[in-house]
Design a protein around this nucleic acid. Structure first.
Lengths: 176, 176
DNA sequence: TATGAAAGAGCTGGGCA
DNA sequence: TGCCCAGCTCTTTCATA
């Protein structure tokens, strides 16, 4: 499964079906994708047992999925709450002036470790940030800095019924 | 690193520092957390080399982090674009009537595979959904269903400068 | 908590169907 | 594409500090 010591190549950051189409995935690839999304550290042997293929054959398929950018990496998932982040929130930022992402001020704000995700969006806002902070006081301090970029609107997360859904290739969603 | 075949125990879905505090993490735990977040399939031996500890000692520390809920699991990261999802968007839903999450209608909507994350928030909206869809036509179809829950506001993601930040225990953010 | 040794499981590369 | 085999690496456990 590649050298775990390097980032995978070809992990474009988003949109636009760059490169390969979802076609070319057979039912076994599908199942493998599902399994590795759920159990990132599952062994090739175990995968082989589940899909009835030899470890070597599975390794080859996984290597292909990594190589063409379908699998972009592997990660341990950690609980923000256990690391001192008691509050999760979404902050929407509506532009003030024509500040683009390349300018130094946004760069500096986006570098803050509390910002888990930052998305540049069209629509009525400009950016959507997902942030984790210690408490509301901490949130206030963070917002002061974010507000230098534009008008902010904050929504504090109470619960997350869907935290992270396994992605299934389009057209292959499970028949319930 | 535990049986990869089971979900980790004690992975509360969020907020509120349930259980253990971030204290009790020494510099080595910190480094391990960073490494496994970046390279989810790194071996215990390799971790041992990087932090200068025996594989057995690393295994023990990782087991502790998993056991107390700091590490909640492992996952392969996949590219939605490579699986046919050309459009990523955030949909905010403002309540219409007092529909709670436990009711069957929201349950059915949240079950749609296009919904990658669903957060229940306070603030001016009620829910924030992160969705992946094939194209704008597909988005329209999805929104028709989501609109049964309330007024929706959609923001289409153009780029994600911060896709997923490694979480660092609070108070231990890296001195730049 | 950490280490080292030993046994078992898993991985990788090459040859072949 | 996939299988098997051989050699090597990784994991796990246990005794010991």
């Amino acid at each position: 499964m590649g050298d775990p010591g390097e980032r995978l190549k070809d992990s474009r950051s988003h949109r636009g079906l760059a490169g390969d189409s979802p076609a070319g995935l057979d039912a076994i690839d599908l199942r493998l994708l599902e399994l590795v999304q759920e159990e990132g550290r599952i062994t090739l042997s175990e995968l082989g047992r589940r899909v009835r293929l030899s470890p070597a054959a599975v390794a080859e398929r996984i290597r292909r999925l990594e190589g063409n950018g379908t699998i972009t990496g592997y990660a341990a998932l950690v609980s923000p709450a256990h690391l001192g982040y008691g509050v999760l929130a979404f902050v929407r930022v509506a532009p003030r002036g024509g500040l683009t992402l390349r300018h130094p001020r946004p760069q500096k704000v986006l570098a803050r470790p509390e910002i888990l995700e930052a998305h540049h969006v069209v629509g009525e806002d400009c950016w959507i940030l997902k942030v984790a902070v210690r408490d509301t006081g901490h949130l206030e301090e963070l917002l002061e800095q974010v507000m230098t970029l534009g008008r902010t609107t904050t929504s504090i997360v109470m619960s997350s019924p869907v935290d992270r859904r396994v992605i299934v290739p389009i057209g292959r969603e499970r028949p319930e």
